[in-house]
């Protein structure tokens, strides 16, 4: 006998993601999911960003990592709420892990929640965490061909930061060409250029981010 099931397996993840999203909205917290390959500059961007904004906004971070807490340690100096998730080999964060981590955060004391995903240019694309915005940090040192090769990640991003722009000459990569490749895959994403180690390069990023935080705060009133 045949039984029709027709159930989307990803619903198990996505329904928790939807719950997380509703929770963030209710609490007027802007949740941002940072994805990239290992070493593209997620933690560095967080360091520079948090340093610039923490006098103005209340920041919390969920740090996803395979086994270590080294990234979380890099952020301890900012005296913010940080929750570490170790995936024990898992290649991405999922909505359930985030839902668990939120319980350890005093969310009423948060304007913006950064979620640093596991460094991986494939799997995190398929797992909604309930974030409002997905930010892909793409280091110029990865070359111009990866947007095509890992297109799912680029398609699902709201913002793409082309990072390590300071290294373009050394890496013999043309930044305009990279930007064109990204836009050919996703013409809706905001594409910005950054050098995460240099806070001066982050003006546009900070403006966008603060605009989003203000918008999420207003949505509560």
């Amino acid at each position: 006998m045949e039984i029709k099931v027709l159930k989307n397996v990803m619903i198990k993840n996505n329904s928790i993601g939807a719950d997380n999203r509703a929770f963030f909205r209710e609490k007027a917290v802007l949740a941002v999911n940072l994805v990239s390959s290992p070493g593209a500059g997620k933690t560095t961007l967080l360091e520079s960003t948090i340093d610039k904004m923490r006098s103005k906004y209340k920041v919390a971070v969920i740090e996803g990592d395979l086994y270590t807490s080294r990234d979380a340690e890099r952020l301890e100096k900012f005296n913010i709420q940080i929750v570490q998730i170790n995936t024990e080999g898992g290649c991405h964060l999922d909505a359930r892990m985030v839902s668990g981590a939120i319980k350890e955060i005093n969310i009423d004391d948060v304007d913006v929640l950064f979620i640093e995903n596991v460094g991986n240019l494939v799997c995190p694309a398929s797992f909604d965490l309930g974030e409002a915005k997905r930010i892909l940090i793409y280091s110029i040192a990865e070359g111009a061909d990866k947007p095509q090769k890992y297109s799912t990640m680029f398609k699902t991003a709201d913002v793409v930061l082309i990072n390590k722009v300071d290294l373009s000459t050394a890496c013999r990569v043309d930044v305009d060409h990279v930007e064109k490749e990204i836009r050919s895959i996703n013409d809706k994403a905001l594409v910005l250029r950054t050098t995460a180690v240099d806070p001066h390069s982050l003006r546009e990023w900070m403006m966008w981010l603060e605009g989003e935080i203000e918008r999420s705060k207003k949505s509560k009133d």
Partner: peptide, 8 residues
Amino acid sequence: GFYVSSLD
């Protein structure tokens, strides 16, 4: 997505 379509 990824679906379980049917069972026999």
